[in-house]
Simulated scan of single mutants.
Amino acid sequence: MGLNCGDTAPLLSHRLSVNLSPCQQQQQQLHSSLGFPSPKLTPQPSLSQQPNTQLAAKSKSLLHKHPLYTPAHTNISFEIKEKILCLEIMGVDSGKALSQNPSLHAASLGSIESIIFFLQSKGIQQKDLPRIFGMCPKLLTSDIRTDLKPVFNFLSQDLKVPENNFRRAINKCPRLLVSSARDQLKPCLFYLQRLGFEDLEALAYQDPVLLVSNVENTLIPKLKFLESIGFSRDEAVAMVLRCPALFTFSVENNFKPKFDYFAEEMKGKLKELKGFPQYFAFSLDKRIKPRHVEAVQSGVKIPLPLMLKSTDEEFGELIRLGAG
């Protein structure tokens, strides 16, 4: 059955919108829903994963419900409202993004969509963007040439991450994308390698947060604390190599209270922590204290690793066997 003239318009409209970017599709919907003439938009290369098509009514509802659309904010430009809609439909909290990244007010939709296209060209999927942009709103106004390309060059050349695994590393630590390759990532990698971190794959996929940590203000103070409680420099380094998560713990909120309890209440010896630095990874109130108290009350002495690593069922069995 052939198409009549009435069927042709929506078909042509659909064909013209197929290759529009996510933001352009949302921009077109927004103009239509608010009664503005649709702008002339240049089609972009199709993406491997396009966001779900949004109904014009939903677009209008989203925009009208946003606090920046209220009559009290009638001075907000239409361009800002378009950005709000674009971010909200992508699943990004626009209010948080605009407050944490004031430069976003002046950014064009074109620049935002260029960043989206670039990230997707590196393997980042549409479903990853809400979390990535939510954690790093600064990314929305990054410069592709001076900010983003050096990060991916670092991943490829310095961390030896193959292109098909970029997404895995970025999703593990989105902050990589807003860290300077020259001033942060490369110096930090150099410092970690000097300490003895030789497994680049582990740094890329398990502990990339170490690469975005400040060497002087974050990493070095952790080693200094371990030395201050009696470990030698070599022993402290060996502990963080065995348990890299130690570099992510707060000295004031983690190391100090847990060590104080270990030394004062548990009467523990440093050699126990040297052999089991993972002690600092367990919750003081939910795991360390209750299990230690139960073991003491039952008159059972359990090695530190076994006491903390065992499941509740296994721990209960250890108590029963020891008490029996």
Rank of each mutant, 00 (worst) to 15 (best):
A263I: 11
S179N: 07
R233W: 03
A281R: 09
S111M: 10
L304A: 00
F152T: 04
S213E: 04
S213Y: 06
P187Q: 02
I89N: 04
S48F: 07
N214H: 09
I220P: 01
V151Q: 09
V237H: 03
L284H: 02
I115Y: 02
C243T: 14
Q50D: 06
Y191L: 00
K267V: 10
L211Y: 09
D128C: 01
R168F: 13
V300K: 04
K127Y: 11
Q29H: 13
N4A: 04
S156E: 14
N19H: 09
P162Q: 01
K65N: 14
H64V: 14
L119R: 06
S111N: 12
L189Q: 09
K271F: 12
P43Y: 10
N153H: 15
C188I: 03
D285C: 13
D199K: 07
S33Y: 07
Y69H: 13
P43A: 11
L85E: 05
K286S: 08
E313P: 12
F118D: 00
T248M: 06
Q26L: 15
F255Y: 15
V178E: 06
L270M: 04
E113Y: 11
S46P: 05
L192K: 12
L68Y: 14
P277Q: 00
A169K: 05
C86N: 07
A56N: 11
E264T: 10
E82L: 15
S59W: 06
I112Y: 07
H66V: 00
A263T: 10
F262M: 01
A295E: 03
F280C: 00
K58V: 14
H66G: 00
L273R: 03
P174L: 08
G134Y: 08
I170V: 15
M90N: 06
